[in-house]
Design a protein around this nucleic acid. Structure first.
Lengths: 233, 233
DNA sequence: CGTAACAGACCGGCAGTCGGTCTATCAAGG
DNA sequence: CCTTGATAGACCGACTGCCGGTCTGTTACG
C-alpha cells in the first residue's frame, strides 16, 4: 500500500489531470481525485498543501516536458542560430504530429472556458521556461550577424506568443475540418502560419521565407486529417 | 430601498470589483458582497445568476471603457491610417497619465497571483473589443499603401499583445522606482517601449520611428514619478 | 392586484483539519 | 543474527466551518 512519496505524488497528479480535463478544475473535487486513486483525504493532504497545488504541479510538468523537448534542439552549438531556431520549430512540429491523438484530446478539453485557469497556468509555465531559451538563440543570432532585432527577449516573446494566439485559428479550422472541409481548414491554417512566418522574419530582420513554422502544406494537411480522424492512425 | 435594476446592478458590480481587487476573486464571498451593499442574498441572485456573472460584468465594463476611448480616435476618417493609429496610442497614453492614481491602485492589485482569473478575463474582453478596431485601421493603412503587413488582424493582435507583455516590465520598473531609482525605472521602460515601437514599425512595414508608443522620455519620467508618489498630485 | 425588487432561513456539498493508526527502518541489546 | 522498541512519516476517515445557490415568503411600486 505504502509507496515512496514521488510515486504517490505522480499518481495523484495523473488522476487529477485526467479529472480536471474531463470535468474542469472547479468542478473536480478532492473527493473525486482520492476516489480515483483509492487514497484517503488525509493521504492527499499529506502530499499536497491545497487543491491549487495540483494546478501548479500539472503546469510545471507540462513546462518541463516542453523544455526538455526544446533543449535537444539547443544541444548542438556548432549550428548557426537560424538553423537552430528552425530546428526547434521543426521538432515542436514533429512532436505535435507524433502525438496528435493525445494532443487533440487534451486541447479540445483545455480550450473549454471552464478550463481557462488550468490553461493559463500551463501557458504561463511553458512561456517562462521557453522564453529564455529562445531569447538565447536569438541573441546568438545577433552576435553572428544573422538576426537583427530591437530586443532579443521581446522577439522571443513575440515568437512564442504567436503560438498562443494561433489557438483561436486552430479552433475555427478544426470546426471547419469536422464538417468535412479538410482543404478549407488546411488553407486557413496555412495562411495564418505563413503570415506568422513573415512577421517573425521581419521581427528578426531576416529575408522573407527564412523562418519555417509550417513545414510543407502537405504536412499541415496530414496533421488536419489526423486530427479529424483520430481513430484511424 | 428599491432602486431600478440598472442602478442596483451597478452598485453590486462596484462593490464586487472593490472586494475582488482587495481580496481576490476566490476569497471574496457573496456574503461579503451583500454585506458591503447592505442587500440580501435574494436580492443578489435576483440581479445575477451566479458569482461568475460578476467577473463577466466587470470585464465587460472595462472593455467598454477601453473601447469608448479608442472609438474617439476612429471618428475622423479623413486622417491617414498612421496618424489615426498614433493618435489612438496617444489617447491611451494620455488617459493613463490622467488616471494614474486609480490605475496604480488597480494594477498593483490586479497583477497579484490570486487575481489571475479576473485579470485574464479583463484582458480577453479588452482584446476582443479592441482587435477589430486596430485591425480596421491597419487594413485601411494597407489600402492607402502606407502599411504593408502579412495579415492585418495578426498585426493588430501583435500590437495589442505588446501592451500585455509589457506588464512584467512595468512591475520590475515600479519595484525599482520605489527604491528611489526613478531614472533607472524610466530607462527600463523607455528601452522596452522603444523596442516595441521598432518591432511594430517592422511588422507594419513602416520606416523606423514612425510608430510612437511612448511620447517623449520626459513624459514617461513624469508617469513614473506620479506612480511612485501617488499622494502628491 | 399583479409584478418585480427584496428578505433571509435553509441546504447540499466542498476544502481543509485533526487525532489517530499502520508500516518501514534502524539501532541497541541479547 | 535475531528480537525488540522506538521514531518518522505514509495513510486514514470522521468531522467542521463555510460557501454558493435555492426557495418560500414579504414588501413596495405602477
Amino acid at each position: 500500500m505504502i509507496k515512496p512519496p514521488a510515486v504517490r505524488r505522480a499518481e495523484l497528479i495523473d488522476c487529477a489531470q485526467a479529472l480536471f480535463l474531463a470535468k474542469g478544475y472547479e468542478r473536480t473535487t478532492i473527493n473525486d481525485v482520492i476516489a480515483a486513486t483509492g487514497l484517503s483525504k488525509g493521504a492527499f493532504y499529506h502530499h499536497f498543501r491545497a487543491k491549487e497545488d495540483l494546478l501548479e504541479a500539472i503546469a510545471e510538468r507540462f513546462a518541463r516536458q516542453a523544455l526538455a523537448n526544446a533543449a535537444e534542439a539547443q544541444n548542438d552549438p556548432k549550428l548557426g542560430a537560424l538553423h537552430r531556431l528552425n530546428r526547434l520549430l521543426a521538432m515542436s512540429r514533429d512532436w505535435k504530429a507524433d502525438n496528435i491523438g493525445p494532443l487533440r484530446a487534451m486541447f479540445t478539453v483545455l480550450l473549454r472556458p471552464e478550463n481557462a485557469t488550468l490553461y493559463h497556468r500551463i501557458v504561463e509555465a511553458v512561456f517562462r521556461g521557453m522564453a529564455p531559451t529562445v531569447a538565447a538563440i536569438i541573441a546568438e543570432g545577433e552576435r553572428e550577424g544573422v538576426f537583427s532585432t530591437p530586443d532579443a527577449m521581446l522577439a522571443a516573446e513575440a515568437l512564442l506568443w504567436l503560438g498562443e494566439g494561433r489557438r483561436v485559428f486552430i479552433v475555427e479550422a478544426m470546426a471547419r475540418a469536422e464538417t468535412g472541409d479538410v482543404e478549407g481548414a488546411t488553407q486557413l491554417i496555412m495562411r495564418r502560419i505563413r503570415a506568422e512566418e513573415a512577421m517573425i522574419d521581419r521581427v528578426l530582420g531576416l529575408p522573407a521565407g527564412a523562418i519555417d513554422f509550417a513545414g510543407s502544406e502537405a504536412f499541415i494537411r496530414t496533421l488536419v486529417e489526423a486530427w479529424v480522424a483520430p481513430g484511424r492512425r
